[in-house]
Design a protein around this nucleic acid. Structure first.
Length: 926
RNA sequence: GCCUAGGUGGUGGAACUGGUAGACACGCAGGACUUAAAAUCCUGUUCCCGUUAAGGGAGUGCGGGUUCGAUUCCCGCCCUAGGUACCA
């Protein structure tokens, strides 16, 4: 019988499902290993061949770990709340839950076709009430917590209330809003309920506050910073404006330091770690106050407090709160027109236009904090309201932007270091000794900073300060298809509903659009009131809510009492290996770490970081094919198409052609005629009898006719071939175009594996004879190679090694059971269907190969390894025979192997000759 | 501008701590089997010189350096991809 992938794959997929082969239980006699994929949003388009890349890699790793004796948790689910289903609902009126269910079924079908070893009994769907009740429950924990800086962790809000009751606001060291009140314990006790709640809200980790948000009118919702790219929405590319609104936010800034330091303890790709570091944006510096004659001074943040004596002016952002009071009557007209002008500039323009210098003098002066000299106060839009204090001290000699500004407006440029060269541009170097700098003259950078900070602290005009770029995360979305926030309002203050009232179900609405009065879609739900009288929160949670804790739910997905039991989380702890795309670097991966830390602080688990090791699979791009339509004299398309190599001899235009009717860039001309009606009578100008298509790498999309559906590949070549080929395509982490050319080679390999077990007539034929040395050598090479490759996630090289191994065994005509059985165990993780089939043909019990024992590598079978221990030559040099050895070239001529042991060893192996390459022994011929 | 990764045949890519560069696969060329095709198998395939051959030379983006020896390490430059940006 020939290798028939269709029947084999269907048979085993059915078997695995019926027998729950991959159902995972907690086990005490095996070590645990948790392999997680980033779960997909089930879109209507289904999977293309790019999507499963990471899933295949994680499945290989999971299966390998099982063979290595680990109890592996490898689950899958769906991130099923989201915008596309809602927009589809707006257009068609169909409930998003229905669309979502249809899409999920389609995804499941496609995933099953690939033969993954997921434990589907643990599946989660974020839009399922059984799931989102716990998302809501976690929101409650955040609402009921505050960050105690003294303890360095989040605590229950009750501990804060106790402190207020005992000693008022005194001695509270918390992450909070900036406008917290100062009060005594007695004050607190006489506060009204509403006043108390208002105050507590300023401390909660999930809080409601008026804040400037990214408002996207086209989507009718606010967006988080990471959902806004270059001033337009990430989804849809609609314009985004800044707007003040009451909004739910998450106090992620409380965790800025821990989010930063935690990055040192995870095994993540360096670019991703860098992205998170940049996003958090820690700057160590000082805050300095420039006093004003009779008001509170201007506070600025600087990372170069040492340049304080080089300050020649102060610049405020146009939105700065002091602009109004600082503008003198003479300057008022100029200032107002400048502010108006910058307000008109969109975020995009402001970013694009970084060349031109603009600004305006307020007419007012501040005092230099140390010298007391007058310092001009300017307004300019190069200072951002949203970063630091929205004001900067300008040091033209040390900062290029300040330099350009000073030159443009003819402001003084004061050199402050004897090593500065400021003829052409600012010079920020820290190497010299200070000049023009009062009491730090002659000091170095290291000496000056502490002296200055101490002086500023003494004057109460500054202190060392750490500033973060990261802002709190906006949490509310004015959308329908998301988790309802489990909150109702009484006297304008938010209160949680009771835990036993969870889940707060998403109410039915007649339409999925905002209401006429501009309320979110939930405002349409009729009679939707808490206890029939209190207004519920009408916004829903953002897309990232459900995905910020889902790895916990897989550990204990059926638990009705808690989001994850102590027992389950103590066993599974954290994700050992997480595979997914790098597009989640500053969204999902940051929020997940944040929630993980909060839940740890509140005592629900022990792990500071949720994802120990992380791999970004590279994106698979599309590879488009083109035909070239010949144009007539008037430039109109004819029915003639010219092959790639001859196109320069004609006037032609390229047209996308469906990649599924092109093989190795040769067009199937018959299929082309049915591709589009107007191609029915197409004529071809061929080269060497073939029509060759052009190619280009582009994003995979329907409009470019370059989408390849995994189902089609599986139908033609099988899931095992698809799995091997996706790995064979190149390094996992590298972006690469999909190209079906070459898949034949991988398929051919599987047929060769099949033939090792069968004779020329196709009958199963395996021998129980003892294998030869050469056969053992071929086997043990692959045992070692695959083990090494998988441990370092180099799956592509394993596939090549398998091919070499099978070619060797074929040449040796090896059909020995002892060899072949171990071979298919090694191959199981890559090609589970064919190996399962061969495993049972060998007489083993069905379903057990996945839990077989990975064969032990024995170096004795590798000739090389017989030499693989260090020896010395001439009594001093170490070498690993027969590999290279380190020795002085001049000595090579007179090489004597003086070490008697080595000489004896070489003699005993009947060494015929030592191969020298340019003075080095690089190999030994036995 | 800054950060990160990378640059190897016609193509995808190997070469794990410096040690015979181009494994493996695709493609291409030639051949075997076949009435023919498919399938399968064999041979060749970095480039240049050399009639085949023997043989020689060059070669891992470019220019230098360290080394007996560099795709690998160091310095300078060019290019590509991803990220980020008046962040004070």
């Amino acid at each position: 019988m020939d290798y028939n992938h269709r029947s084999i794959e269907q048979k085993w997929q059915k078997f695995w499902a019926e027998n729950q082969t991959f159902k995972t239980a907690e086990s005490t006699d095996k070590p645990k290993y948790y392999v997680l994929d980033m779960f997909p949003y089930p879109s209507g388009a289904g999977l293309h061949v790019g999507h499963p890349l990471g899933y295949i890699a994680s499945d290989i790793f999971s299966r390998y770990k099982r063979l290595k004796g680990f109890n592996v948790l490898h689950p899958m689910g769906y991130d099923s709340f989201g915008l596309p289903a809602e927009q589809y609902a707006i257009q068609t009126g169909q409930h998003p839950a229905i669309t979502t269910a249809v899409n999920i079924n389609r995804y499941r079908e496609q995933l099953d076709n690939i033969g993954f070893s997921y434990d589907w009994s643990r599946e989660v769907r974020t839009s399922n009430p059984d799931y989102y009740r716990w998302t809501q429950w976690i929101f409650m924990q955040l609402f009921n917590s505050w960050y105690n800086k003294d303890a360095g962790k989040a605590e229950s809000i009750d501990t804060l209330i106790d402190k207020f009751n005992n000693s008022g606001s005194q001695g509270i060291n918390a992450e909070s809003d900036e406008d917290t009140s100062v009060f005594s314990a007695a004050d607190w006790k006489v506060f009204s309920e509403e006043e108390q709640q208002r105050e507590l809200l300023k401390y909660r980790l999930a809080y409601l506050r008026e804040s400037t948000v990214n408002w996207c009118a086209a989507l009718g919702t606010v967006l988080a910073n990471d959902e806004v790219i270059n001033g337009v929405s990430e989804r849809g590319g609609y314009p985004v404006e800044q707007k003040k609104m009451m909004q739910w936010s998450m106090r992620i800034t409380a965790y800025a330091d821990r989010l930063l330091s935690g990055l040192d303890n995870v095994d993540w790709p360096e670019p991703l770690v860098e992205m998170q570091r940049n996003w958090i944006g820690k700057s160590v510096g000082a805050s300095v106050i420039f006093p004003l004659s009779h008001k509170r001074g201007i506070e600025v943040f600087t990372t170069r407090v040492d340049t304080l004596f080089g300050v020649s002016f102060v610049v405020l952002a146009p939105e700065h709160e002091l602009v109004e009071v600082l503008t003198t009557d003479e300057q008022r007209l100029a200032v107002e027109s400048y502010i108006e002008k910058t307000a008109k500039k969109s975020e995009l323009d402001r970013m694009a236009d970084t060349k031109s210098v603009s600004g305006v003098f307020t007419g007012s002066y501040a005092k230099h904090p140390i010298t007391g000299d007058d310092v001009q106060i300017w307004i300019a839009d190069y200072v951002l309201a949203g970063y630091g204090t929205g004001a900067v001290m300008a040091v033209p000699s040390g900062d290029q932007r300040d330099y350009v500004f000073a030159k443009h407006f003819n402001l003084p440029i004061i050199p402050i270091s004897d090593s500065q060269n400021i003829e052409e541009q600012a010079d920020p170097n820290k190497n010299g000794k200070y000049i023009n700098s009062d009491f730090i003259n002659g000091m170095t950078y290291q000496e000056a900073v502490p002296v200055l900070v101490a002086k500023l602290e003494e004057l109460k005009l500054g202190k060392a300060k750490v500033n973060f770029r990261m802002r709190d995360a906006i949490f509310g979305r004015q959308r329908y298809w998301g988790e309802p926030v489990p909150v109702y309002f009484k006297n304008g203050m938010p209160y949680l509903i009771k835990e036993e009232e969870l889940p707060l179900l998403l109410p039915e609405v007649d339409k999925y659009l905002p209401t006429e009065t501009g309320e979110p879609p939930l405002g349409r739900a009729e009679g939707w009131k808490y206890q029939d009288q209190y207004e519920y929160e009408l916004s829903t949670m953002p897309g990232w809510a459900g995905s910020s804790w889902y790895w916990f739910r897989y550990m204990d997905s059926q638990n009705q009492d808690i989001f994850v039991s102590k027992k389950a989380v103590d066993y599974w702890k954290a994700v050992d290996l997480y595979i997914g795309g790098s597009e989640h670097a500053t969204g999902h991966l940051l929020y997940s770490r944040f929630w993980n830390k909060v839940l740890k602080d509140l005592g629900f688990h022990q792990e500071e970081e949720p994802f120990k090791k992380l791999i970004n699979q590279g994106m698979i791009q599309g590879r488009s094919n083109f035909v070239y339509r010949v144009l007539d004299d008037e430039g109109k398309g004819t029915n003639q198409f010219v092959s790639l190599g001859l196109k320069d001899q004609y006037n032609s235009i390229p047209l996308h052609v469906d990649v599924n009717i092109v093989y190795n860039d040769v067009l199937d001309t018959d299929k082309f005629k049915t591709f589009r009606p107007d191609f029915a009578d197409a004529e071809f100008i061929l080269e060497n009898g073939k029509y060759i298509c052009g190619t280009e790498v582009e994003k995979m999309s329907k409009s470019k006719f370059n989408v390849v559906n995994p189902d089609d590949i599986i139908e033609t070549y099988g899931a095992d071939t698809l799995r091997l080929y996706e790995m064979f395509l190149g390094p996992l982490e590298q972006a690469k175009p999909w190209n079906t050319n070459g898949i034949e080679g991988v398929h051919k390999f599987l047929r060769k594996v099949w033939r090792l077990f069968h004779d020329a007539q196709g009958n199963f034929n395996v021998s129980d004879e003892k294998p030869t040395k050469a056969e053992y050598k071929a086997l043990h090479k692959i045992i070692k190679k695959v083990e090494d490759d998988i441990e370092r996630f180099s799956f592509n090289t394993s596939v090549s090694a398998f091919m070499i191994c099978v070619n060797e065994l074929t040449d040796l005509k090896c059909n020995k059971r002892q060899i072949l059985q171990d071979l298919i165990i090694v191959l199981e993780s890559y090609a589970p269907h064919i190996t399962e089939e061969l495993w049972t043909l060998l007489g083993n019990e069905a379903g057990t190969i996945s839990y077989a024992t990975y064969p032990t590598f024995n170096p004795e079978y590798l000739v090389e390894s017989e030499f693989a221990y260090p020896v010395s030559i001439n009594g001093k040099m170490k070498m690993n025979l027969p590999l290279a050895l380190d020795l002085d070239a001049k000595a090579v001529e007179e090489i004597v192997i003086s070490n008697a042991d080595v000489q004896r060893y070489l003699d005993s192996k009947a060494v015929k000759k030592l191969i020298f390459v340019k003075g080095k022994i690089i190999n030994i011929v036995v």
